[in-house]
Nucleic acid binder design. Structure first.
Ligand SMILES: [Mn+2]
Ligand SMILES: [Mn+2]
Ligand SMILES: [Zn+2]
Ligand SMILES: [Zn+2]
Lengths: 138, 138
DNA sequence: CACTTGACTTAGACAAAGTCTATCGTAGGA
DNA sequence: TCCTACGATAGACTTTGTCTAAGTCAAGTG
């Protein structure tokens, strides 16, 4: 999506080589990368890019709503360019593989008022855990 | 629950002062403590207890299924002694307050086979996010 | 095009959370 | 009471991420 670059420019971003390569990395079909993985792939195209810049750019993309942070374990956060279609995640407990999933129904409606304790509930994250086909046969 | 101490003894645990105070801390009504919070409270009763021992003991309790790990943010893991009644969590986005909640229905059934990608799905975590009453008025 | 400037990038220090290791101590059985 | 394997300890180390001070450059101006 060179859409993304256009949108960023429209938001007043200076178009630097660093921001371009980070956006290109996320634009691929490689979903749910860690910041270090993004950095490694970005550095293939722009070897001198720094970790700080990758973190800064990812944080900005998250703030703009162009990328989502996903936390499926207590290791590194993962960055999800699929920010425009709401979804949840299915995670392999053995190898860590992550798939996007789209459950039926709205989990927000399954939380009764009596279980809200006066909170204004704004969102919900759902993480399914299991074993992927590869790990099951191995 | 001095039940807990009995169960641990039954599992062959040596009953040390350190393990006893960690179990006592978790036994109170103070739910969802971080490891450091557990350490601080344990140290009130046993000043020389080390961080490593708290981490070790918490890890063992998790392995035994007596305590659950809860990760609601990318900060520290929290340790949940409410391991015997399945539940999910409602988290305040501002102050981090955590409440146990019991939604209706089973979220596992809302994930159709066509969205399982061959995984054997074993569990699901649900985290509701919102703003608690205290933070809403402040 | 050359100039200017503040936004951007960088290296590396720093921090928080957790793990690991070598050594010491002790719970609990003989 | 003694022995010893299991557990506790201090502190080094790792991972992930943030912050800072100084240098660089994108892009607007003339
Ligand atoms: Mn996703
Ligand atoms: Mn709980
Ligand atoms: Zn797997
Ligand atoms: Zn709050």
């Amino acid at each position: 999506m060179s859409d993304l670059l256009e949108r960023l420019r429209g938001r007043g971003w200076r178009m630097t080589a660093q921001r371009r390569v980070v956006a290109e990395v996320l634009d691929g079909d490689h979903v749910h990368l860690t910041a270090d993985e993004v950095h490694a792939r970005a550095a293939d195209k722009l070897p001198e890019i720094s970790r700080a810049t990758v973190y800064n750019t990812l944080g900005e993309l998250v703030t703009l709503g162009e990328v989502l942070e996903v936390t499926t374990d207590r290791r590194a956060k993962r960055y999800d360019p699929n920010a425009h279609r709401p979804h949840h995640h299915l995670v392999c407990a053995r190898c860590g593989a992550i798939r996007d999933v789209h459950p039926t129904g709205n989990p927000l409606t399954s939380l009764p008022d009596s279980e809200r304790f006066g909170f204004t509930v704004e969102g919900v994250e759902v993480t399914y855990r299991g074993v992927c086909p590869d790990c099951a046969t191995a």
